[in-house]
Design a protein around this nucleic acid. Structure first.
Lengths: 163, 163
DNA sequence: CTTGACCCTGGAACGCATTCCAGAGCTTAT
DNA sequence: ATAAGCTCTGGAATGCGTTCCAGGGTCAAG
């Protein structure tokens, strides 16, 4: 049984949290992590209790919170606030977004599947090395066209710009 | 019944295709659209048949093709090739990616749901304006931890960097 | 002393489709 | 003629979490 060091430096902390030291620095810059004390040589010395904080951040990010949201929450809390209601509301927003995205991705999957089916039948009909006009078949493709302005693609797209 | 103009300028073309003129210029720069002829004053004059091309591009992008992939396909085709097989293979890749992402998002949704349930019970137990430690509960959270290095979040994340 | 493994800094790059910018020239209806 | 509204250009900005960079210390083992 190994004793747990009270203070860790960036590399150790990073390893334990499953991130890179760069990422830790980044969180610090963004206000997600308090500036840790420094050893005489200037190295960061993180109190090991911060490990939970980093893990919490990772998990929060992974469910859709943004760094800025978290920073704002931490700030509010540092001022004595109890941002719980806000946190909950944000999480619910995330859920709503995720559910919407889920529908989108399902549609996309179905589209891709039927597209592939269609293409395969085209390919079966055309000789090797000959054009089968696969992409061309996309120009028309019944769906939406008008309903949705044909968004940039659910895969690879995060947050819709506000403007 | 209105006659269809044989040539359109960027604005008209853009409106019909549901994109911005800027986007058309962008596609041109990227090699997705051939440089159109110009009127004496320098305005682009798109042959109306290009409308289908733009729609095809939009649709291809929306199912996950990238601009560079499309450009490469068009190039190959311009050289007399028949990139159908490649196109099909790419589409299948997209499908695989989308299916993976679908699973991820489902997991994320489930996580968010149970998280909210958990939080609500905590909130019910704690007085208004008091800290309920919602985020704290994320630090541990049984799941993965080790399995996946806890990716940046399925929502808002497109393509995993290769490195 | 040298090597290799850490650590420090502020700022830039990544991905990637789209949008925005400034400075300038058409066109068209008034 | 004037204003509103197109169009042109090349380059930069956007989002956003993460990574990379150069140039420079620190430290323990060999």
């Amino acid at each position: 049984m190994k004793a747990i060091k009270a203070y860790l430096r960036s590399g150790e902390m990073a390893r334990l949290a499953g991130v890179s030291p760069d990422t830790l620095r980044h969180y610090e810059r963004k206000g997600l992590l308090p500036a840790p004390r420094r050893s005489p040589n200037g190295y960061r010395e993180y109190h090991s209790s911060l490990l939970d904080r980093v893990r919490m951040i990772r998990r929060a990010l992974s469910v859709g919170f943004t760094i800025d949201e978290l920073a704002s929450i931490f700030r509010q809390r540092a001022n004595g606030g109890a941002p719980c209601r806000r946190v909950r509301a944000l999480a619910e927003e995330k859920l709503t977004e995720v559910e919407a995205q889920l529908m989108e991705i399902k549609t996309l999957r179905d589209d891709l599947r039927s597209m592939l089916r269609d293409w395969d039948s085209r390919l079966a009909r055309s000789a090797d090395g000959e054009r089968a006009g696969l992409l061309e078949s996309l120009a028309s493709s019944r769906r939406e066209e008008k309903l949705s302005p044909l968004a940039p693609s659910a895969i690879r797209r995060k947050k819709v710009r506000s403007r």
